[in-house]
Design a protein around this nucleic acid. Structure first.
Lengths: 145, 145
DNA sequence: CTTAATGCAAACCGTTTGCATAGAT
DNA sequence: ATCTATGCAAACGGTTTGCATTAAG
């Protein structure tokens, strides 16, 4: 069933690619690191190497299937390309990540770029904060699947 | 002369710390990587190790003297803390980095955080683009000093 | 004189790559 | 049958750390 998505992306249908795509689609967490994905594969007793996870994710990125982010310094996280652009706000306590779009922010970025004579190619906006303890439903989410 | 800044920050006045602070203050580029600083030290025939550069920069960060950014994945750049918060726009062609403040963007970020029930702790906004070739005065700036 | 800072080299960690083998078309 | 994808282990690049030495107070 994932095979079609892969074929559409011009990628051969192989077990690692199918499994990794499944994890990206059906994991509760939309933002996974290569290690996260590798661990889930190990849990499922799939015999797939970490190097393959990186290779597949890089191919998926090139094919436009996933987007790579650098929320935490020194480690990339990957999310299925959701079509529309969005920015992120994340909780420093529990790792929860929410996505948002604010057209006002987008517009003002364009204005800033114009002011400096830049043609915008891309941007990265991450807001770091703390969600209120009481209603922080994702506490420890990083280890869930 | 840099000694006072160091003493005020509660740091012992040592040659590596003075030299690195001087580079941060007097280099044309406000945004330097550890390697950039190390190379400048080598050019000046200062016998300071790369590990010391990293240690000193980390101390400076802890003391609030510098801020660490992650514009390019996989490498940190450091800038003297300029007091006021600002965001960055950078040229993918020549590496030029400009700083800006947009109160509208700041306000909207707060609104977004409120909407999700987050208390903002920090944020990182980097706009990536291309400055117009004709007036891109910083071409190759990365190798200047 | 005492304690912290430095230089060097080795360790680290996330990521990439070379190469021989397994697998998709 | 062909040619790409995989697994493994080794390499990589930026950064950190252990330890003996040097220098600041």
């Amino acid at each position: 069933m994932e095979g079609n998505n892969l074929r559409k992306a011009g990628l051969k249908v192989t077990l690692p690619r199918v499994k990794i795509l499944e994890i990206l689609e059906h994991s509760g967490n939309r933002h996974l690191s290569a290690e996260d994905i590798y661990r889930k594969l190990v849990n499922t007793r799939e015999d797939i190497g970490l190097a393959t996870v990186y290779r597949v994710l890089t191919q998926f990125e090139a094919a436009g299937l996933v987007t790579r982010h650098h929320f935490a310094e020194g480690m990339a996280v990957f999310e299925l390309s959701a079509g529309a652009h969005h920015d992120h706000i994340l909780c420093l306590d529990c790792g929860r990540v929410e996505e948002f779009v604010d057209t006002g922010i987008e517009e003002r970025q364009t204005a800033v770029a114009d002011r400096f004579g830049f043609a915008i190619s891309d941007h990265a906006l991450v807001i770091y904060g703390h969600c209120r303890k009481a209603n922080c439903p994702h506490r420890g989410a990083a280890t869930n699947d």
